[in-house]
Every structure is written in structure tokens, then in C-alpha cells.
Amino acid sequence: MAPTVVYDSLPVISSTKDVEPTPFQAMCHGPTIPGIPSFKTLEEKRQWQLEHMASAFRVFARHGYTEGMSGHISVRDPIHTDAFWMNPLGVHFGMLRASDMILVNLNGDIIGGKRNRPINAAGFLIHAAIHKARPDVHAICHTHSTFGRAWSTFARPLDMINQDVCNFYNAQGVYAEYGGLVLCEEEGRRMSKALGPTGKGLTLMNHGLLTVGKTVDEAAYLFRLMEKSCEAQLLVEAAAANGLQKQIIRDEEAAYNFKMASEAESLYCEFQPEYEYEEFLTGGAFKA
């Protein structure tokens, strides 16, 4: 049975006499679109999270972020707050459903979900370290996407070269200490430190990208955005190598863009077109 979803009612901002709109309201001319829902029970919220987690994997598959058994998403459980859901190792992103996910606590104990497959050991160490250090983070995305891997070889943050990448203004880190496959807790802790207390995106040198969010929708949208921003940056660097000059957005404008666009409600809504398209393509098969 589908979760009971309750959407908070937000006022229409119609004139300068009204109170100042929130960044989310400012995006809408007229009535606001539904934002992050609330639920009558934590069980319903859990099911909703798992459905959106599965849809994020399907979206990632559709955009070609698969690479063998690499890549993982985690979502903090609303009931066992010291545990998070992860995808089973070795199942293609495009086949994942809500019922396939595995619940693991911060100590590494499998405590729920589908137990007939393992989770990614390196993925657990990375996600556990970030979930421990960042109580505000409810979801983490990491894959070995093509342009993220390419840009990561430079061990540089993305430049503010367009409006969209400003969602990462002063909120991106670089982990420039590549230590091979992550098979020890210390490596995960170093990655978490590189992300920082307020980071939204992390470039892992010679490895790929990682994003976080208050919802899996936010983290997934930011991952898509960061991957496409890496592609744009690589194109710009190639053009600049032939003598064209880059124009970087000034700090004042970049900070304004970040304030108005890079907040949880807006970033959740940014992912909904992808979610709804995936639901349309599959008839909601990922919810099972």
C-alpha cells in the first residue's frame, strides 16, 4: 500500500506586500509545487525513502553511471537512526527495487532488508564515516561516472563557470590522497574530513564523485549536476587550452545563486522530474 503523503501548504507570493518568499517559493510564479512530504508514521516514511532510493538507481542506470559492481547510495533509516540502507553488491542499478535494499548499522551489522546478498565493503566504510560525522546528511551517492572520474584526475574543485554549478559554491571538497580501494576505516574518515561539516559534493582524486543531501532526491540531483558540471568543465578547459578565456562568476553572484537554489526543498524538487519520468517509463516497478 502506498504511503500516506501529506504535503505542507505553502502560500502564493503574489506581490511585494507579502512577506519575503523562501528560496523555494521564489522559484514558483503562482502556486508552489509540492515539496518534501511528511508522513503519518515512520514506517510510511521508510517505504517512501526506499522507493525514491530505488528510483535514483534507475535514473543513474539510464544515464550510464554503472561500472561493474562499483557505486552505491545510502539512506539513513528514520526508525533506526544509527543505521542506513544500501544497495546489494553486484545488482545492476537498472534492476533495483525498494525491496532489494539492505539495512546496516554504523557498526557494520546487517539488521534488516534483503539479506541474501552482501553490500559493498568499501562503500560501507565511506558511507558509515560520513553518516557518523554528519547527522544532517540523510543520503549519500557515489558512482564511478565517466566525467567525474576524468575531472577527478586534476584533484581540483569545480570552477563557478555557470549558474548551475553555483549549487556547490563553497560547498565542495577535494580528497587528494588516493589510497587505492577503501578497505580501512581511516580512509573513510579522511574522505569525510575532506567533505567537511557543510560540504554537498566531494571530488575523490583518481576515483570519482560523491554527493550528500537531506533526502536521497537531493543527493541524487546533486550527483547528476556534479557529473554534468565535470563534463562542462572539461569542455571549457579544452577550449581554454586553445586560447579562449574563462569567465568565472563573481563571488557575490555565486553566493546569491547558492542561497536561492541550493537548499533542501528546492533540490528535492529538482529531482522530481527525473523521478516522475522513471515512474512513467517503468509503471512504478521500482517501488515493489
Rank of each mutant, 00 (worst) to 15 (best):
N242Y: 05
M160G: 01
Y7N: 07
T22P: 08
G201F: 02
K287I: 14
A54R: 09
L10C: 05
Y268I: 01
A98S: 12
R189Q: 14
H127W: 04
I110G: 01
A285D: 15
G30N: 10
S266L: 11
I126H: 02
R46M: 09
S74K: 04
M101Y: 10
L209P: 07
A56W: 06
E237R: 02
N257C: 04
T4A: 10
G179C: 09
E187V: 07
E237N: 03
E278Q: 14
F84T: 02
S14H: 11
A288G: 07
E231C: 02
M226G: 03
Y65W: 13
D8N: 14
N105S: 06
Y65V: 11
Y256C: 02
H138K: 09
D100W: 10
R46A: 08
L225S: 04
F84D: 04
R58E: 14
L244C: 04
P157F: 05
Q172D: 08
Q163I: 00
R134D: 15
V182E: 01
S38C: 12
S70G: 10
L202I: 09
V5N: 09
F57N: 11
D136N: 13
P23N: 12
V59L: 12
D109Y: 04
T153G: 02
G208D: 08
S38I: 15
A254Y: 00
L234Y: 00
G188M: 10
A254Q: 00
L202Y: 12
